[in-house]
C-alpha cells in the first residue's frame, strides 16, 4: 500500500506505544489485537527502532497482515489487518 493509502485507512484500534521501549510496543500490540475483529485494521504508534521490524514479523507469523509503515516526526505508525 502507498503512504497515502495507509494514511487514509479507517482504523478500529489505535495503540499509542510511544512511551515504551522494546518489548513494550510488541506486547501492547499483542494485547490490543485481541480486542478487534477479524479483518479490522489496527495502527501502532512507536518511536522504538527495533519495533519497526519486530511487529511486522510477529504479525505475519501470527496470521495477521502487515499493511505498511508511515513515518511521522520522531515516530512511526505500523498498520496491521487482523487475520
Amino acid at each position: 500500500m502507498t503512504q497515502e493509502e495507509l494514511q487514509a485507512l479507517t482504523v478500529s484500534k489505535s495503540v499509542d506505544a510511544r512511551g515504551t521501549a522494546c518489548p513494550g510496543p510488541l506486547l501492547e500490540a499483542k494485547k490490543a489485537i485481541g480486542t478487534i475483529g477479524s479483518g479490522d485494521i489496527m495502527e501502532i504508534l512507536s518511536a522504538d527502532e527495533g519495533t519497526k521490524r519486530d511487529i511486522p514479523k510477529w504479525a505475519n507469523k501470527k496470521g495477521h497482515e502487515y499493511l505498511g509503515t508511515v513515518e511521522d516526526s520522531g515516530f512511526f505508525k505500523i498498520y496491521l489487518k487482523k487475520g
Binding site: C22, P23, L26, L27, K61
Partner: peptide, 9 residues
C-alpha cells in the same frame, strides 16, 4: 524481555 517475546508468540 525474552519472556515477553515468548508471550507475544
Amino acid at each position: 524481555v525474552i519472556l515477553s517475546g515468548a508471550a507475544a508468540d
